[in-house]
Amino acid sequence: MSHIAMSDLRKSYGARDAVAGLSLTIGPGVTGLLGPNGAGKTTLMRMVATVLAPTSGDLRLLGLDPADREQRTEIRRRLGYLPQEPGFHRHFTAFEFVDYVAILKEMTDTRARHREVRRALELVGLGDVAGKRIRKISGGMRKRVALAQALLGEPQLLVLDEPSAALDPEQRLRFRELVSELGGDERIVLVSTHQTEDVAALCQRVIVMRDGHAAFDGTPAQLSGVADNRVWIAGSRDPRARLWWRTSEGLHRHVGDPPAGAQLVKPTIEDGYLLLVGPAAVPDAVAA
């Protein structure tokens, strides 16, 4: 039962639905969640990580019901979670922090636990700074410490909320390599991100969220396909474009309905994403 299944899942805060009746099934592999701020990504991630209870709807994780206390504990035994804003105790060293989380994950054999902590820290490239206090390491390193704790015990379900934020390009490359290796046959990796490049590099499947709904669910290629024949380059800004921006070459890249004779270019995932969630989103472009 290696999948996440949700049916009419809803999380409300007062009158506002952060997640508004979402129905999805997510299987093994790396699935990316894209969406603007406030789209409901983090709320969804927190529900999948069992730290937030849905207001209504049905959620099954690895075939288990997180609403049931015993089954929730069982899910947590198989879960690795990187929260969007990891709260560290800054006086801990990187090793102490990951070791502490390892105990919370019921790893009681000291020798085996320490071996696992070292493995996780090595995986994220922090083996040589394990003894440094968290307050003394950079933001990017802290993010990797948080990632290390999520990798403890080789979890079956890995929930990573904006894992590549604060990482420099080299670290981001390494992170992509690591996560793509993690998304094996059995493991479900759910990655929430603002980085469309991450999705292109990592994910077999991408879900774009907007206002608590899934505005798109498909492959990265399908997402860029949303903008097929709708991206063009021109020397000056075309007011008919739904979105546009100036490129580093001084040209203007436009997304929307092109005028006749426009110089069409190959769309990227970002173009597709912007068409979906931009100010003039195109509802009929949603892929099933």
Binding site: T50, R76, Y81, G87, H89, E106, A146
Partner: peptide, 22 residues
């Protein structure tokens, strides 16, 4: 009160060890 001071409830909350046991 470390976990609440550090706003680390999500870290601790996703672990199998409950608040009661902690």
């Amino acid at each position: 009160n470390r976990e609440r001071r550090d706003s680390a409830q999500d870290f601790y909350g996703a672990a199998p060890l409950s608040e009661r046991v902690r």
